[in-house]
Amino acid sequence: MSILKQLWTAVKGASTEAGEAIVDSQAIRILEQEMRDAKKHLNQAKENLTSVMAEKMGIERKVKTLRREIEEHEGYAVSALDNGNEGLALEIAEKIAELSNELEVQEELLASYTGNVSNLKKTIKGTERNIASMDRELSVVKTTESVQKASAAAAAKFSGTNSSLRSATDSLSRIKAKQQKRSDQMSAAMELQNEGEGGDLKAKMKAAGIVTGSASSNDILAKLRAKRGG
């Protein structure tokens, strides 16, 4: 089962119980155990990799030595031929054949070790990635659990045991009422301020036609015409 699916099950499992614990703590413990196992496997794989790499280096050395020996013996064989010593040359050639066969075996071995090393490295990287994401997901689940606890405590503090008060829509209505009250208070305060500055009196005089308030465009035009005419 994928890690995410397991976590999902862990979180969902609790929803059937009408209850407090939102996260199945048993499931979390199991996951934590699985993570510890995964980490152990990872360490084993790393140790494996080290020893496989050491063996691979040994084989590389062997291959190098064999190649050098073959080259050397080829030199000897040529010298023997140059000296007209056919018998010795043939003996050397046999040795070269022996070395070449051995080289072939070792080279095959080296290729398989190289493949092993790259596979192991891939496995280790993948496991590390898995562990990291498991860590992350587990930490989110634990976080959610803590938030759940904190929220339950806050809700109890806020509305006591009366759970009907805790419905989201009721809460929203209460908040809206509070906001309305706040904005009413603000307009009231602004009104008071206006009155304080005499705004209210001016408005009353304006309403009564005692002060005109603002100059009208017609007034201004008339004034300008009078000025031009005069």
């Binding site: 634990k142 976080t143 803590s146 904190a150």
Partner: peptide
């Protein structure tokens, strides 16, 4: 709020 995971409310 302190706990297994600390939570800021």
């Amino acid at each position: 709020i302190s706990g297994e995971v600390d939570v800021l409310q």
